[in-house]
Design a protein around this nucleic acid. Sequence first.
DNA 1: TTGAAAGCGCTAACAC
DNA 2: GTGTTAGCGCTTTCAA
Lengths: 366, 366
Amino acid sequence: MARSTNARRPATLASLAAELGVSRTTVSNAYNRPDQLSPELRRRVLETARRLGYPGPDPVARSLRTRKAGAVGLLLTENLSYAFRDPAAVGFLEGLALACEDAGQGLLLVPASPEREDVAAVHRAGVDGFVVYSVPDDDPHLAAVLERPVPTVVCDQPELETVDRVGIDDRSAITGLARHLIELGHHRIGVVCMRLGRDRNDDFVTLERQRSAHFHVQRTRLAALADAFAGVGVDWATVPVVERFDHTTASGESAAAQVLDRDPEITALICTSDILALGALTEAGRRGLRVPQDLTVTGFDGIPEADRAGLTTVRQPVLEKGRAAGRLLLDNAEHGRPRKVTLDTELIAGRTSGAPRAAAQIWYGP
Amino acid sequence: MARSTNARRPATLASLAAELGVSRTTVSNAYNRPDQLSPELRRRVLETARRLGYPGPDPVARSLRTRKAGAVGLLLTENLSYAFRDPAAVGFLEGLALACEDAGQGLLLVPASPEREDVAAVHRAGVDGFVVYSVPDDDPHLAAVLERPVPTVVCDQPELETVDRVGIDDRSAITGLARHLIELGHHRIGVVCMRLGRDRNDDFVTLERQRSAHFHVQRTRLAALADAFAGVGVDWATVPVVERFDHTTASGESAAAQVLDRDPEITALICTSDILALGALTEAGRRGLRVPQDLTVTGFDGIPEADRAGLTTVRQPVLEKGRAAGRLLLDNAEHGRPRKVTLDTELIAGRTSGAPRAAAQIWYGP
DNA sequence: TTGAAAGCGCTAACAC
DNA sequence: GTGTTAGCGCTTTCAA
């Protein structure tokens, strides 16, 4: 191992007490209740501790005794490191870290990669509660978390009756976006969405798969889009919907390509995240499609990069989500039924959406 | 609190054993050594556990017994949430998370804000080791970490004789940058650097303060710049060096303004980070200074935003630093003396550096 | 102020 | 394959 200040680990609170000829209580008090013993004695205790190389009360033993770990666990289904690539996730983390910091609590990132079915990490986590960030409803790690006898709050997904939740109203958010496009005159569209389940399907999505998606957020957004466009006579079954497992701009590029190959006549490409949309913009450029004249592209999240690109999107308060999740978890207020926090979103009409090409605007009805 | 699957917490391994009429060992084995008991018995144990709402062995008690927490602590001196704002720090985090994930270890973010002198969080952290990321040499949290009897590795700073370290060769890195500028013909320069101590000094920096800076990295970079420019006859005492406590683009803007107000004749502005440099570019634009014709601006780190802006900078492998730090800590290999990992850097000559204005190029000698 | 007693919940030898 | 015995290191009534 890397370094050990004190090669041996001999000194314990008990041995210190013995050395000093006082009780363990006194030593414990020297650290935890300075006012419970004379300054002089306390000084002697601390002094002797230093001499013996006693590093202070062992945190784990203390946790066992006090039944408090002083930390919050965070469960992400993505590879832990992926989270740091996604600006929305980083924003969430920042908010959560903020809340933890305010409360003097640590934040434990639980190593729960999606491929590794190793739920043990969840069992091993010494925490006073969990925050679960956007996982599928059939995630085994989530199941393991829910079995632990500690408070839990879920952010975004899944939606669980009995568990605290913070998120947004995905249906109304994406419906607003759909209306924006419908008003502009789009009715021949394509969709690029994030993974719908734990299985990889980098391909078109059947209606059945849309309906049974294990990611509530994606499922809701697709359903809401279907409803909105059905309202203006679009047969959703004809709309190309492409899914990508990895949440990267590269995915956005290839997915956009797949949609455009299938139906070059679409006038708008709706992406369920900014990252995907940014990739789609790249692909559009590659094909010589002008945005928005030849193709409208939209995202979701409102990350800084999207803002810079002038992307039409739905902004959601990612930092606030993290902070709210942390506060909910750390807030000791007694409460009966599970609490549900729904944060506001905002439609950002950027420079990537506009009226469709004249030709396509001619609408012959369904 | 948020939610409790099992309101009471009655079931323990012992009570389960009692209920089943078997020994605690057997129950323990059912969870930890499935091969140590008959499948039938194991099934019965797990089944009864479910019935009693026993959530499995308590992680803290297990940690106490096994002397393993299954997690690595991360100490950052910045407000924890700040880390998520700095792309270089996020890259480091990603690398570290990667290494932890590979090893199945959790990553505990220790809530150690610089203002709060509350070292308790370090004492409370149930971890098997610490990674310390870029803190001043007089940081009390660092001192607390070093007192804990667990392995520690420091990234970047401070440089400690007896502790494992991963970092870069700051001196040679910035010297390469200085040479680049010197070759272009710059000799009237200004510098913007990050905080040099735990005290806030958003102002010019005396030579004394430069010399005694508590942030080794900044100190080294300034010293190396001084040496390099002294080599071509520049009197370092005349070079305006401005410090900023907060590491933001806004800081870069105001610092650049401060330098340019002091000496409008400088032809190059060296910033010790990309974030600061990006701000400096903004300020230059505000003043109508063309970059690089009127002013050369350089950064340090090589973050993606810098790349996009075409910034002249020094790229350092931030993700690799994180990964290396994690590996060093998690690598159980016996080793005698502390290990030092120095990663390579690369000078990126971007579009923000060029030859100085003709007028300034006339050099009258020292 | 200080001390004695009683575990917190679990695992690891080692014997049966 | 299963049980017995000993703690891991600490905090916390409660009494002195």
